[in-house]
Design a protein around this nucleic acid. Sequence first.
DNA 1: TCCATTACCTACTCGCGAGTAAGACTACTC
DNA 2: GAGTAGTCTTACTCGCGAGTAGGTAATGGA
Lengths: 224, 224
Amino acid sequence: MQDARHDRTDPSGNPAKPRSRRLPRQVRERQILDAAVTVFAKYGYHEAAMDEISEVAGISKPMIYAYLGAKDELFVACIRREANRLIDSITQAVDADLNPDEQLWRGLHAFFEYVNDNRASWTVLHRQASVQGQPFTAELSEWRERALNLVAGLLARAGGSSEQPVQLEQMQPFAAALVGAGESMLDWWIDHPEYTADALSMRLMNLVWMGFGDMVQGRRWKPS
Amino acid sequence: MQDARHDRTDPSGNPAKPRSRRLPRQVRERQILDAAVTVFAKYGYHEAAMDEISEVAGISKPMIYAYLGAKDELFVACIRREANRLIDSITQAVDADLNPDEQLWRGLHAFFEYVNDNRASWTVLHRQASVQGQPFTAELSEWRERALNLVAGLLARAGGSSEQPVQLEQMQPFAAALVGAGESMLDWWIDHPEYTADALSMRLMNLVWMGFGDMVQGRRWKPS
DNA sequence: TCCATTACCTACTCGCGAGTAAGACTACTC
DNA sequence: GAGTAGTCTTACTCGCGAGTAGGTAATGGA
C-alpha cells in the first residue's frame, strides 16, 4: 500500500467529496462552537480533546486555533454564547405586567423547557465544577451572577409591594436556593424522564411558593 | 557538590529528621486520604496531580499506588469516606421522636454545620461535575442517591401521617430540589461569609416549609 | 492572468503527569 | 545473624493531547 491515508476516498477508490466546502469564517465559527458545546458537555472541560472537537466540527484543528483561540478561550466563548441564549429565553418568557407569582412561574417553566430542549447547552453551563484557578473561572462566575440577579429580581418583584419594595440584596440567598433547586431537579429528571417539564416545574413552583408545610395540608398553587 | 540530594538535611548540614518515620499502613492510608481530599477539593479530579497529593501527604508516590491503588480508586476511596462522614452527621442529628418539621430543621442545620466545618470534604463530594463515563461515576451517583433517600425519608415522615403515609418515591423530586437548594446556598455562602450557618439554614427552612407566598406576608417558621 | 486574501490541511513538537521497575532500609522472629 | 515481611525511595517510561510550523488550494478583484 503506497499511501495509507485514505480518509478522503471511499472504499471504491473514487475521490470522495472533500469535507471542506470552503465556508466563510462566520459559518465555521458557529459549527466549531456547536461542536465544542457538544463535546464539552459530554466530557467536561478537561477530558474534552481538541482533536475530538475538530472532528465533530468537521474541520481541522488549526482552524479552531485560528478562529477561536486556545482551549480555554474556546470554552469561554461557549459559556458566553450559551449563557446568553438561556438568559434571553427566560427574560422573554417573563412578562412584567403579570402577577409576580405568575412571573415566577413563567420563568421557571421557561428554564425547564430550555434545558429540556438544550441539554448540552445546559450541561456546559452547569456541570463545570467551578474549580478555582482556571483561566475561565471569571467567565463562569459572571454567568452565575447574572442568573442569580435575574432570579433575585423576579423574587424581589414577587415579594415586595409598590409602597414597600424589597432589597434585591436580601433576595440573593433565596435566589441561590431556587436556582440550585432547579438545577438539582433537572439532574434528577435525567434519570426519571417519565416526568414532563410542565409537571416538574409545577412541583418546584409549589415547593417554593406554597412551601412544604402548606403542601402536606393539600394546599396548592395554581396558575391564574 | 558531591551529592545534590540534600532533601533530608537542613541548611546547617546536620542530618535532618527524616520525614519517613516508618509508620504503619493504617496511619499512612489516613494521611494519604486526607491529602487527597485536600488536593481533589482544590483542583478537581483531573487537575489534581498525584505528585502533589504525595507531597502533601508527606510520602512518595509509589506508596499511594501500593496502598490505595490508581488515581480513580483513590478518588473513590475519598468519596466513600467523606460521604459516610457527612451522612452519619446528618443521621445522628435527626431524632426520630421529634416533630417532622423539627426533624427537617435539625437535618438541614447539621448539613450546613458539617459543610462549614469540612469545606474540603464537601467540595470533593459536590464540585465534581459528574461527567459521564468516568470510572468513578458509579460511586458518585451512589452517594448522591443515598443523600437523596435520606432527605426523601425526612420529607416523607414530615409530609405523611400514620394513617396516610406518603410514598418515598413521590418525595424524590422534592428531595432533589431541597438538596440542590442547600448546595447552592452553600456555594453562595462562600462569597458571603457574613452570614452564619444558623441564619442560612433557617432561611432555607423557611423557604421550603413556609414557601415564598407565606413569607412575603410575614409568616415565618420557628423551631418549637 | 497575476496577485492578495482567505480557507484549509498534514504532520509534527514537546511537556506534563500517570504509573512502574528495581531495589534500599528497618524491624521483627527464630 | 540470617531470613522475611513490610515500609519507603529514586529515577525512570510512555502515551496523550495542546498547540504549531509550514505549507496547499480555492476565490475574487485588477
